[in-house]
Design a protein around this nucleic acid. Structure first.
Lengths: 245, 245
DNA sequence: CAGTGGTCTAGACCACGGA
DNA sequence: CCGTGGTCTAGACCACTGT
């Protein structure tokens, strides 16, 4: 007999219901990034299904980049790593030429009424209070990106109250450790505009310069919007490659 | 016994060798876009393997977007459709608001020595002769994109010699029918620059305007470079959305 | 209806990684 | 060595499509 039962509509395929079950455990935080999953044979036995079927469920989540398989080692909850995302768009060259995380300087952190373009994306009431940050990102002391960041105050109050000195170059690990909010996916939206006087000053631009504007809505596994940010960098160092079929 | 044999190193997995075999048939042109593949049971029988294994081979090619499966109908060689690619980057709005193929106007078609940036990508000798076209793409008679197109003269001589009137809005179907050259994949590369006087005139721009520059190297199934083009459009109508995990 | 892909079983054996 | 994922068999039955 099967020790565990599958959630969801029993007219759905078994592998789909198992995938949903595992996904829920990850969404709940019962299984966290880096955790090892039960083996495929283990899952099959636990749920009283065939190994091939358990395998199909795992394949589904591997495909959705929620899990990672390693031959001989096991299957693990994937750690999302987002700061590569910048590298997809901008070619940062440090003097050494290494792939590096840009330094972060927080210029402002305050609570303000959310403007409508933020409120919509974060799915909060227009004019409701939200945490607003302005941040500069630098490589070798050269400013590269100016960022405007918004967080729903209800979920991130502890982040707002923590000392600025304790905030490092990466925010997402802090969101997790301080507020228990895990960023698992994001939508990004890329446009071009001319630099405003304010941005020109921040990025130390002399002449009218086209900017790449990268808007990102970062979400939890379940799709709840957690952070909205807008990053602006000079288009000169912008380059994006794709392969299409 | 098995009627057909699999190509390739027999230390490779069977599904991999079957996928390679099918891929070769497609690369050769023995199976063309739109063609129906043998059924999964048929493949299994033909090669004396299990249905699950045949299915795995098909899954591989579906994943690589070479095949498409339709439940109850069969599996088909996918028709690559590239002119959607523009829609990934530019939001064209016709007056009706429909998804449309922009009209094409060929401004120039000549044979010239290939500049080095073209020769490198097309893998021909620098300074070797190549077909060069200049093309304007319009929606509702508004110029939207200026394109510079290069083709290796060895493969596309018949295209060069055909009457301009017979060339429609889409080039890839012509490449196929006239020169037997099938575009199956492409690399795209996106950057930003300010409009030159020449481009400003072509696109009827009044003021200095940032442009999106989309460079595309189009290739055959086997990866042989067939066409290089550079398209420029105003950044105003540029927008690119992604989802990342 | 027949033929297609989609799901599932109940295993076997192989290849890899770590103790 | 054991436990993991990777490949493979030889089917059965279901769900969808077109005639």
């Amino acid at each position: 007999m099967s020790a565990k039962t599958l959630k969801g509509d029993d007219r759905l395929p078994i592998y789909q219901r198992l995938a949903d079950t595992l996904m829920t455990e990850i969404t709940n935080g019962q299984r966290r990034p880096g955790d090892r999953m039960p083996s495929e044979n283990g899952l099959a036995e636990d749920y009283g299904i065939s190994t091939g079927t358990a395998r199909q469920a795992v394949a589904e989540l591997v495909d959705r980049k929620v899990l990672e398989r390693f031959h001989g080692k096991g299957t693990f909850v994937r750690r999302p790593s987002f700061d590569q995302s910048l590298f997809r768009f901008f070619r940062f060259r440090s003097t050494t030429g290494e792939a590096i995380i840009p330094e972060s300087r927080i210029l402002k952190r305050s609570i303000e009424p959310a403007p409508s373009y933020v409120a919509t994306r974060l799915e909060i009431e227009e004019g409701a209070e939200a945490i607003n940050m302005s941040r500069l990102r630098l490589v070798d002391n050269e400013p590269l990106l100016a960022e405007e960041i918004w967080l729903p105050v209800t979920l991130f109050r502890e982040f707002f109250e923590m000392p600025a000195e304790d905030i490092g170059d990466l925010l997402y690990p802090i969101y997790d450790s301080v507020c228990n909010q895990l960023i698992a996916q994001a939508e990004e939206d890329l446009t071009v505009e001319m630099a405003s006087p304010e941005i020109s000053r921040l990025l130390r631009l002399k002449e009218p310069t086209p900017l790449i504007v990268l808007e990102r809505l970062a979400k939890s596994y379940s799709g709840k919007p957690l952070e909205w940010r807008r990053s602006r960098g000079t288009a000169e160092q912008f380059r994006y490659k794709t392969h299409i079929r």
